[in-house]
C-alpha cells in the first residue's frame, strides 16, 4: 500500500466507502450481492471515482486474489490497439480461480481512435465468457455506439462540495492537520468537484505547514502552475522577442515540457491575459494553428519560437512604412 501519495493512501477500498455518486454506488452494491457483473462504461470528469469504483469492485469480488483477476490498462499509455489486444489475450487465457470471470479495466478508453474501438469491440465479444470489461471515459459520446450498447452506462458527476469537504476533514484528522474553514473553501474553489485535485492540493499545502488556510492554498496553486507561461506571452506581446525566446527555452529545460504541453498552457493562459477581448481570439487561433504545425512538423522548438514571433507581431503591429 502506498502511503506517501495521499490520493492512493486514502483511496476507498470498498464500494460503500466511495465518496458521493450515491446512485452509482447503489447499483454496484446490487452487483456485489449477485456476484455478477455486466460490461460497464464509467463516464465522468476526472477525480470523480471511476478508477476507485473499478478497483473497489475487484477487491470486494476477489478478496486477496484481486490482483490476479484484475487487469488495468491505460489506453493513452499503450501504443496501438494491437498491444491492448495482446495484453487482453494473455490475461484472458486463464480462467479465474476465485470467480466466474476476470475484470479488465480499460482506463481512458476515449483516447482510442474509432478504428481501435471497433477492434476493441470484437475483442470484448470474444472474451465475454471469461471476462468483464469496465471502460472509463471522460465523455461517453466519444465511445462508439456498438460498445455503448454492450455496456451498462454509469455516469459519474462532479462531486458535491459537502462530500469533498467531509473527505478532506477525514484526511486532515488522520494526518493531524489544522485545516481551517478558509482553507477548505479555497480548496473547493480550485478543485471544482475533482476530489483527486483536492487531495493533491491538501498534500502539497501540508508539505509547507500543518496549519492550512486559504492563503497557503493559493500560494501552492500559484507554485504548481508556472507563472513563466504568462510572462513569456507578455514578453512576446511587449516586443521583447529575444527575451521571451530565452525564457521559453529555460522553461523547456527546467520542466522538460513538450511542445504540446506548452501550447496547451499557452491556450489556457490566453484567456486570462489583460488584453482586449478580440486579441484573445486572435491569439487562440494562432495557438491552434501552431498546435497543428507541431503535429505536422519535425522540430517542435522551432514551431514554438515561430509562434512567439507571431505573438510579437500581434503585440507590435507596425505603421505602414512611409
Amino acid at each position: 500500500m502506498i502511503e506517501s501519495i495521499w490520493v492512493e493512501k486514502y483511496r476507498p477500498q470498498k464500494v460503500d466507502e466511495i465518496v458521493g455518486q450515491d446512485g452509482v454506488v447503489e447499483r454496484l452494491k446490487g452487483y456485489l450481492k449477485t456476484k455478477n457483473l455486466p460490461n460497464m462504461l464509467f463516464a465522468g470528469p476526472p477525480g470523480t471515482g471511476k478508477t476507485t469504483a473499478a478497483l473497489a469492485l475487484a477487491k470486494e469480488l476477489f478478496g486477496k486474489a484481486w490482483r490476479e483477476n484484475f487487469l488495468e490498462l491505460n489506453a493513452s499509455d499503450e501504443r496501438g490497439i494491437n498491444i491492448v489486444r495482446g495484453k487482453i489475450k494473455d490475461f484472458a487465457r486463464t480462467r479465474s480461480v476465485v470467480g466466474d470471470f476476470k475484470i479488465i479495466f480499460l482506463d481512458e478508453a476515449d483516447a482510442l481512435t474509432k478504428d481501435a474501438q471497433h477492434a476493441l469491440r470484437r475483442t470484448m465479444e470474444r472474451y465475454t465468457g471469461t471476462c468483464r470489461f469496465i471502460l472509463s471515459a471522460n465523455y461517453s459520446s466519444k465511445i462508439i455506439e456498438p460498445i455503448q450498447s454492450r455496456c451498462a452506462l454509469f455516469r459519474f458527476s462532479p462531486l458535491r462540495d459537502e462530500d469533498i469537504k467531509k473527505r478532506l476533514e477525514f484526511i486532515a484528522s488522520k494526518e493531524k492537520l489544522k485545516l481551517e474553514e478558509s482553507g477548505i473553501e479555497a480548496i473547493l474553489y480550485v478543485a471544482e468537484g475533482d476530489l483527486r485535485k483536492a487531495i493533491n492540493l491538501l498534500q502539497s499545502a501540508a508539505a509547507y505547514s500543518n496549519e492550512i488556510n486559504d492563503e497557503l492554498i493559493f500560494k501552492v496553486v500559484a507554485k504548481a502552475r508556472p507563472e513563466d507561461i504568462r510572462d513569456i506571452i507578455n514578453l512576446a506581446l511587449g516586443g521583447k522577442f529575444t527575451v521571451a525566446r530565452e525564457r521559453l527555452r529555460e522553461l523547456l529545460i527546467t520542466y522538460g515540457m513538450s511542445g504540446e504541453d506548452v501550447v496547451e498552457q499557452f491556450h489556457r493562459e490566453v484567456f486570462r491575459l489583460d488584453i482586449p477581448e478580440e486579441e484573445k481570439v486572435k491569439l487562440a487561433g494562432m495557438i491552434g494553428e501552431y498546435d497543428f504545425r507541431i503535429k505536422e512538423g519535425s522540430n517542435e522548438l522551432l514551431q514554438l519560437e515561430s509562434l512567439l514571433a507571431q505573438f510579437t507581431l500581434l503585440g507590435n503591429p507596425e505603421k505602414e512604412t512611409e
Binding site: F241, R293, G297, S298, N299, L302, A309, Q310, T312, E318
Partner: peptide, 26 residues
C-alpha cells in the same frame, strides 16, 4: 532575430522557418 529587427519581418521569417519544418516533418 539578430538580423531582422522589424516585428513583421521577424514574424514572416519565422513563418517560413515553421513551414520548412513542416516539410521536414512530412
Amino acid at each position: 532575430p539578430i538580423e531582422y529587427e522589424d516585428p513583421s519581418d521577424l514574424a514572416r521569417g519565422y513563418d517560413s522557418i515553421s513551414k520548412a519544418d513542416i516539410f521536414l516533418g512530412r
